[in-house]
């Protein structure tokens, strides 16, 4: 959905859904995960429909994701850190 306009120069390694990703430092979790791949960050707690980051400025709360075991973190406001473990949030199957 998005691509980087230039090469990254300094990176950190994060773990998204068990996979290692080298991403540029100084950016947010949301922007790191929006490069390539699909955009789905979580499923809606009501219908289970896929959801992705929307406003990118901490207003809409669409980009909620699990970071280092803590759910409901705002991916668009949180900078990437070395060895951060990130997981999609799925609606509990009833």
């Amino acid at each position: 959905m998005f691509k980087k306009q230039y090469e990254s120069h300094e990176t950190v390694s994060i773990i998204f859904e068990g996979k290692n990703l080298d991403v540029e430092i100084g950016q947010t979790v949301a922007s790191a995960l929006l490069v390539g791949g699909d955009m789905v960050f979580r499923s809606s707690v009501v219908s289970g429909q896929p959801r992705a980051p929307y406003c990118m400025m901490g207003v809409c709360f669409e980009c909620l994701i699990e970071i280092d075991g803590i759910p409901n973190q705002l991916a668009c406001m949180i900078p990437v850190r070395e060895a951060m473990k990130i997981k999609r949030q799925q609606k509990n199957k009833e």
Partner: peptide, 15 residues
């Protein structure tokens, strides 16, 4: 504006 944020903060452009 989300795209503008992505561009300014991480140099991302729509693909």
């Amino acid at each position: 504006t989300a795209v503008d944020v992505l561009y300014k903060s991480s140099g991302l452009i729509p693909d």
